[in-house]
Design a binder for these strands. Structure first.
Lengths: 247, 247
DNA sequence: AAGTGGTCTAGACCACGTT
DNA sequence: ACGTGGTCTAGACCACTTT
């Protein structure tokens, strides 16, 4: 009952073993696993340890567990996947390129009705907001045009902050901990103004990402990021094959 | 020591309690939590139960735990987020629209060098592949043009399958359990052929998603999905504020 | 009624990293 | 050396669901 000289924990070993059976197809979706106590005995561990592995696989979406029914291999999720949207500065630096941010315009003003509606999360017409527009560039080339609205009530000191060369996103990230964000991605044709800012021809395809950030207390910031479509792409590596943490 | 008449488990209650402290900002990033034993006593549970809650929060990315150092609130991740890419049929139906798939072309042939390179995951020039092209439509309007390559060696029976009205994605999902996928998203201008297929004007912006699917044994399928950029958008709701399952 | 997973405990030993 | 989290156990009771 003593552990062999391994560095890896029992429940990790068991978790990986079962996961391998599933992803290799040896255990097809719908396959029923032995009962917990039997598997514990098979692996030579206590039921608690076995339970830890099975519970984890269930939370990750590989298994479905039902009382009295048993434990089954889950159906893979319908062609869905997960895409990470990275921080712009980190993304540029990760490519080994020089990163710059330049503020183009700045102003404080009240929200319009359409803006408040777009922002959501309790934003109201007439509410004060800071509006910023700036350009992210990589090796001197336009990389992303950012338009941003910030709620001064949810970001203390934002009005005193100098964003002339520091992107507001980075500052906000440090100041407003643990906010939530929603995203929307689409393609659009560059208009005249956009084309000039991004050094494109009018009509060129661009990738637009709109990010809305909030805390439980209300909206924090709204950001629109526009990338030249031919040069930029979002990438998600081979990775999360199971569903997200379900909270 | 007996439980009060709650339906919720202790570790879930504790997990949510701590999570709330973090997302509300009461515990800022970097904040050090009391030691596990002390917190267990505070909550009136055993150390194992306390550990379950803390371990889970650490796996979800809210906490960083270091031996001898202690447990700390993590820094929020750099402006990253998670985007789900849904199944096309489900997506259309979710909008309450009529879904159709129509196969445009089909053929079996050997992979070219460039194709094999693009597919990756062990795909080799000269390897047999099934090539499919079809159009997904919603309420009779072109919704997405799909170009797909399938590895017959990894998808038994695919050559005998009739995809004239059934999208290959749905079939593959049922046949090839628990594969992994990587994704790439970008914007592009519609060429003449693409514009005709999607009923757009030449030059209109489109959203392109390339999905590569594989199992441990090798590549399964490669798919290119092109959406009219102005009508389609990817959306990720307010949700995963913590990092993905780390595996 | 019975079988299954869900939860919880009290105690123990270990690995690791700082001191 | 010491303090922290990491892991593990043997046993127990409960909740849920099907028979």
């Amino acid at each position: 009952m003593t552990q062999p000289p391994t560095r890896i924990s029992q429940h990790d070993r068991i978790t990986e073993d079962i996961r391998r059976m599933i992803v290799s197809g040896d255990w097809a979706p719908g396959h029923q696993l032995p009962v917990e106590t039997a598997m514990a005995e098979t692996y030579g561990v206590s039921r608690m340890t076995m339970n830890k592995a099975l519970t984890r696989l269930a939370r990750e979406g590989y298994l479905i567990r039902r009382k009295k029914r048993g434990t089954f291999v889950a159906q893979p999720r319908a062609q869905s996947a997960i895409m990470e949207i990275a921080d712009i500065e980190a993304e540029v630096r990760a490519m080994g390129q020089d990163y710059r941010f330049a503020l183009r315009s700045r102003g404080a003003r009240a929200l319009g009705a359409a803006e408040a509606d777009e922002i959501g999360s309790g934003a109201e017409e007439g509410q004060a907001a800071l509006r910023l527009e700036g350009l992210h560039s990589a090796n001197g080339q336009p990389f992303c045009l950012e338009t941003r609205l910030v709620n001064p009530a949810r970001a203390d000191g934002v009005l005193d902050q100098d964003f002339s060369t520091t992107p507001p996103g980075s500052w906000l990230l440090r100041q407003v901990p643990w906010s939530e964000a929603s995203h929307r991605i689409r393609a659009l044709n560059a208009g005249a103004a956009l084309a000039e800012q991004l050094a494109l021809r009018e009509g060129d395809a661009c990738l637009e990402i709109v990010r809305r950030t909030r805390t439980a207390e209300g909206w924090v910031t709204w950001a629109r990021l526009v990338y030249p479509g031919d040069s930029h792409q979002l990438v998600a590596a081979f990775a999360p094959r199971a569903k997200t943490e379900q909270r």
